[in-house]
Amino acid sequence: MEYVFDVFFEESFLVMERSGLKSRSGRRDVIDHLNAVISGCVQGRETASVQLAVSLAVKSAIDYHRKMKSDNFAICMMGKYHNVLYIAVRIAWDWSLEDSEVIGCLLEEIYACEKTFERIFLGALFGSTAPHFIAGWKSDFNDQDENLRALVFFLHHAGRNKSCFPSYSYAYHDILPKKFIDIPIESCGKAAPLRVAIQASAPDILMILLRHGADPNPDDGGASPIISILDKLLDYENRAYPYQLISCLELLLRCNAMVELPYKPHLFHARREMFEIKYAVLLADKVIPPNQFFGVPPLKAICRCHVRNQLRNCFQLPRGINKLLVPRKIKKYLDLLD
């Protein structure tokens, strides 16, 4: 079966123009053809054989990319030779591939060339058409809902595989391993996906990212996400704060027991005074919970953040919550659902 897929890529790409996979329609033609080959290989067989066939198809796409890259002095030739990886992305999604190790290899292969995963994230954040205006390509998924479900699919497998990728750390000024969900998006100013979701005022997407272990304070060189939201809320002079922004703020506050005050290196009392002056309106409107900024937060909030941090460090969000021997209500609380 492996030979069939190797031949498929070799023969198909031999006669294809270099720009043959640049358009979404071109990629879909190859995807449809490959899906037909997979269906023919597994017709009448058990589910395990289906998973094996899809796994071999994805591996063959990765191997073809590696071979072409190796023949070009370890430099990706781009064009159809790189887009073959996005054929594999769609195939893995179409057939609900369960092999996290293979998907981890696919993500590593993409990152080695692009140093970003924006083609997986942008469609979920902005819809299928927006990436064309932002980054010059069209999503391989039909609409924002399908993009979002595909993103969750890859978040799930990246967590199971404990996938990390070398990325610059602004906190340590060095290249350090960073989780798939926190890798900056190049075409969005190298901001982390969580920060982009906040900038887009998308609490539903922010919720998905936080539940799957996104760092609520991403190390991407930007300001504190919570402080950024407070600054945006100050722009509404009529105090008619948009529901989406308030929802984003509430979600982030669930993941931060205490919020560090800005204005370092001033002493705490000076920082507090400066904070209270600048955000007096938000404090008066009870948008800001004082205990989380300069008081004592509830013990249950501290415990939730501590447990979530431990699970996040072990790549166990959100699935690890269900393994805890605690009442269901506490599980919902830990999972940001309550």
Rank of each mutant, 00 (worst) to 15 (best):
E17D: 10
S19C: 08
G20V: 09
L21T: 05
K22Y: 08
S25G: 04
D32C: 07
A36V: 01
V37W: 08
G40C: 11
C41Q: 15
G44I: 15
E46Y: 15
A48P: 04
S49D: 11
S49I: 12
L52M: 12
V58Y: 10
K59L: 12
S60H: 01
I62W: 04
I62E: 05
M68R: 09
A74R: 09
C76E: 13
M77N: 15
M77K: 14
Y86W: 09
I87Q: 01
A88Q: 01
D94L: 13
W95D: 04
C105T: 13
A112W: 11
A112L: 15
A112V: 12
E114A: 13
E114T: 12
K115C: 10
F121M: 12
F126R: 07
A130M: 12
I134Q: 03
A135Y: 09
D140F: 11
D140S: 11
D145T: 11
N147K: 04
F153P: 03
F153E: 08
G159F: 01
G159C: 07
K162E: 08
Y170L: 10
Y172E: 09
Y172N: 08
H173K: 05
H173S: 10
D174Q: 08
I175T: 15
I175Q: 14
K178P: 01
K179W: 03
F180Q: 09
D182M: 07
P193N: 06
P193K: 08
A197S: 14
I198P: 01
A200W: 08
I208C: 00
L209E: 03
L209S: 05
L210P: 01
G213N: 02
P216I: 02
D219Q: 07
D220S: 12
A223S: 10
S224K: 08
E237P: 00
N238L: 00
P242M: 00
P242Y: 00
S247K: 13
L249C: 02
E250T: 05
R254E: 06
M258L: 15
M258R: 05
E260A: 07
P262K: 04
Y263N: 05
K264I: 11
K264E: 14
P265A: 08
H266Y: 06
F268N: 01
A270Q: 06
A284H: 11
D285G: 02
K286F: 13
V287L: 04
P289E: 14
P290R: 08
N291S: 14
N291F: 13
F294L: 02
A301W: 00
A301P: 00
Q310Y: 07
Q310E: 13
F315C: 02
L317Q: 03
K323P: 03
L324K: 04
D335K: 11
